[in-house]
C-alpha cells in the first residue's frame, strides 16, 4: 500500500544493492500484512546485511525531486530496507497507522531509531510526527541525533520555531556537521540568533572555542545588541572566525554591520568574488579537521 512515489525509487535502489534472496524475502514479508510487520522491521539487517548503497545520479535526482532535501546517500542497505518497509504500512486507518509506527519507536534499538527518524519526511500524515521528532532531539545518542538533524528535510518543514531552535542549538552543542542541516538558512530567526549569541558568550567566558558557523544563523538579525559579538570576531586570531564575521556582516542590512565589513576589505572582496561563502567555509573547516 504505497502512498508516495519515492518508494518505487527506493525499491529499485534496494533491488540493486541486496541479494535476490533478501529482496524476495522483503517483498513477501511486506505483502503478508500486519502480523509480521514488526518482526520484519526488526529482522531486516539479518537478511539485507549492511553495505554501503550504490546509487545512480538519476536516482538521487528523482528522490530530491519528490522530496527536496531528501537523500539516501551514505545510508547502509538495512536502513534503506527499513525505511522502504515503513512506507508499506497500511495507512487507511490513521489512528492504527500512527499507533503501529509509534510502537516501533518505543521498542527501537539505535539502528532502528536511525531508520525511523530518517523516514519522517516520507511517512503519511506528516503533521502527526512533530512531537516524536522533538522527542528525538532530546536523545543523547549521536547517530540518532544525526539522523534527525542532518540531511533530513522533515524538521525544517514541520517543526515549530522553539523545536527548530532546540535542534539547531543542540546540533552546535553536540558538534554535528551543521552545514548538513536542511533549511538552516531558511529557518533562521531572531530568537535563535539571540540563543546562539548567548551560547557563544558562555563558551568564550569558559575559554572554550565556538564553531564559527554559529554566525550563519545570526547575520540577518544583527542589531545594536548583536553587533559587539561580531566585532569581537573580526579581530579573532582564528581565520575562520574572521571569515564568519565577514559573512555575517554581509548577510546583514544593518548599516553599522556594513561599515564593519568595510574594515576587513580583503574578506569583503572575497565574498564579492564568490571565493568566500558559508558553504566554502564549512568545507575548509572540515578539511582543517582532516589535516589536524
Amino acid at each position: 500500500m504505497s502512498h508516495f512515489q519515492p518508494d518505487r525509487v527506493l525499491l529499485e535502489i534496494l533491488k540493486q544493492n541486496i541479494s535476490d534472496e533478501a529482496y524476495s524475502w522483503l517483498l513477501e514479508k511486506s505483502a503478508s500484512g500486519k502480523v509480521s510487520f514488526n518482526t520484519t522491521f526488526v529482522t531486516i539487517p539479518r537478511k539485507t546485511g549492511k553495505k554501503n548503497l550504490v546509487i545512480t545520479q538519476s536516482q538521487q535526482d528523482l528522490l530530491a525531486a519528490y522530496v527536496p532535501g531528501f537523500t539516501v546517500n551514505h545510508w547502509l542497505t538495512d536502513r534503506l530496507a527499513r525505511v522502504w518497509l515503513l512506507l508499506q504500512a497500511d495507512n487507511s486507518d490513521k489512528e492504527k497507522y500512527v499507533r503501529q509506527i509509534e510502537n516501533l519507536f518505543l521498542a527501537a534499538e539505535v539502528n532502528e531509531l536511525v531508520a525511523l527518524y530518517s523516514a519522517l519526511p516520507l511517512l503519511a500524515f506528516p503533521e502527526v510526527w512533530t512531537a516524536r521528532c522533538s522527542e528525538g532531539i532530546r536523545s543523547n545518542i549521536g547517530d540518532v541525533l544525526e539522523a534527525i538533524m542532518c540531511r533530513n528535510p522533515y524538521p525544517a518543514a514541520y517543526l515549530s520555531d522553539p523545536a527548530w531552535n532546540q535542534l539547531v542549538m543542540k546540533a552546535f552543542f553536540t558538534e554535528k556537521p551543521v552545514e548538513e542541516i536542511v533549511g538552516l538558512d531558511k529557518r533562521a530567526n531572531k530568537d535563535l540568533a539571540l540563543i546562539l549569541r548567548d551560547y557563544a558568550h558562555e563558551r568564550w567566558a569558559a575559554h572554550r572555542t565556538v564553531n564559527p558557523q554559529i554566525w550563519r544563523c545570526v547575520g540577518k538579525f544583527i542589531d545594536e545588541a548583536l553587533l559587539p559579538g561580531i566585532e569581537k570576531l573580526t579581530i579573532s586570531e582564528n581565520v575562520f572566525d574572521r571569515e564568519a564575521a565577514a559573512l555575517a556582516c554581509n548577510d546583514s542590512s544593518y548599516t553599522p554591520a556594513k561599515q564593519l565589513l568595510d574594515t576587513i576589505p580583503v574578506l569583503k572582496s572575497a565574498i564579492q568574488s564568490g571565493t568566500l561563502t558559508w558553504d566554502l567555509l564549512a568545507l575548509k573547516m572540515k578539511e582543517n579537521v582532516l589535516q589536524s
Binding site: 553536540t174 558538534e175 554535528k176 582532516l290
Partner: peptide, 8 residues
C-alpha cells in the same frame, strides 16, 4: 566520511 571529529 568528512564529518566533524566528535560526532557521537
Amino acid at each position: 566520511s568528512g564529518n566533524t571529529v566528535l560526532r557521537g
